[in-house]
Amino acid sequence: MGIQLDFVSSDVISSKSSLEKIDFIIEKIKNNVIVILEEGLSPKEEAELIETTMREIDVKDFHGIEFYRIDHKEMRLRDRLANYISGRKTGMTIVGPTRMVEAIKKESDGISVLAKAMKGTGKKGKGGKGSRKNARKDDTKKSEKKKQVKKHKKKPKDTGEKSAE
């Protein structure tokens, strides 16, 4: 019993088509994994994510998602122009299943994610460096946790998909 967070680097996510991205996210979510994408989804991809979620909802197990995109609005105009021209997306997206993620809320200095652990969390998810063995011991002591994800100006150094619990 715990909370599995999968951090996915922009290299991994940008190599996928929009459809592949959505399938990738939904598969993880349905396995009770909270996904943090280094690269934000575009608004159209977000709409596709909602559409796909609605199609996948079933009354027994899957009731939907909570997600939030953090924008890098503080970027310099020159960088924003470069990103527009290259089509590169900025920001970070957090997505989780509603039965685990109770709320994702914008705070003055970042994003607050209120999540609760549940049985069977991440049982089909890909384990990595941060798999269950490396989980913090106190993770299992509390059934409910509040995790704070701060907004960073610098690009994270993640180069691949990894899991953390």
Partner: peptide, 12 residues
């Protein structure tokens, strides 16, 4: 996120 997605899609 619903508000952000709706407005983002209209802007796009």
């Amino acid at each position: 996120q619903v508000n952000i997605t709706v407005i983002g899609n209209l802007e796009a």
